[in-house]
């Protein structure tokens, strides 16, 4: 097991948002986190990467234990050397070029030489098909292009797992495909990914595992084929139906 989260609780202003989440991810897994909006999916990802402090919970990463509530800054820094995070709204550094967006973390946070960082960044940008835009600023790019740069920024630090929080939800429909195809390619190359998404096609055919959340609980989890073909829970079946009918 590469990553295991145990009994994660989180509330905002006394209102429970995560009410005891248990999650396991194996190396090479592509886990799709599904669920209606407001069910706590974003909060879960954010807690796993300490963008949010859980009220309670444990994270076991490569056999190392971390307390999701009281981890030290040092431990948090350590976790973040193993992870990358792709945001719904990209969050590219607006005052930096595409290339700088990818190298900045390597050079400042990772103390890497600029030339080495540039090489790594170019390779990452090539993987997402953005190597021809290295001198552009984020606001000159389409949403799909920005998100691909954001993925390259994540890839550049060779993470063990990438968290995606609805990476295509902010995109115009015609731009979703280019981002999904990059993610599909990463999945095929064996990258471990935890993906909050509403893209049922991706969840069904690219991810090997599905976690269905609602109201701060995991209602059902299992292999994606099984989940879509034979959902065990009433709520899961309803959710699948409403989503598929919408499409």
């Amino acid at each position: 097991m590469m990553l295991e989260a145990k009994n994660v609780h989180k509330g905002f202003d006394g209102i429970g948002v995560l009410k005891g989440i248990d999650l396991q991810v194996n190396k090479g897994d592509v886990v799709a986190i599904l669920g209606p909006s407001g069910s706590g999916k974003t909060t879960l990802l954010r807690c796993l990467n300490f963008l949010e402090r859980a009220d309670q919970g444990e994270l076991i990463f490569d056999g190392e234990h971390f307390d999701l509530h009281s981890a030290t800054n040092r431990e948090i820094a350590r976790i973040r050397t193993k992870t990358a995070f792709v945001f719904q709204n990209y969050n590219l550094f607006l005052n930096q070029t595409v290339l700088q967006n990818v190298t900045l973390g390597l050079v400042t946070g990772g103390h890497m030489h600029r030339s080495e960082a540039n090489d790594i960044a170019m390779a990452a940008l090539e993987r997402v098909g953005m190597a021809d835009k290295i001198h552009s600023y984020p606001n000159m790019l389409s949403g799909g292009q920005q998100q691909r740069v954001a993925i390259a920024r994540g890839l550049a630090s060779s993470p063990e797992i990438i968290y995606f929080d609805e990476p295509t939800s902010a995109l115009d429909p015609e731009l979703i495909g280019e981002v999904l195809s990059v993610m599909r390619q990463l999945a095929e190359e064996g990258m471990t990914m935890l993906v909050v998404t509403h893209e049922m096609e991706f969840a069904r055919n690219v991810s090997n595992k599905v976690v269905f959340m609602e109201g701060g609980y995991i209602i059902e989890s299992g292999p994606s084929k099984e989940f879509f073909e034979h959902p065990k829970e009433e709520r899961s079946a309803q959710f699948i139906n409403t989503i598929l009918n919408k499409e």
Binding site: N49, L51, A84, F85, L92, L104, R153, G154
Partner: peptide, 12 residues
């Protein structure tokens, strides 16, 4: 989000 993205690429 600019700060958060910075933290996620290990900047302090």
């Amino acid at each position: 989000g600019q700060l958060e993205a910075g933290y996620c690429v290990r900047m302090n």
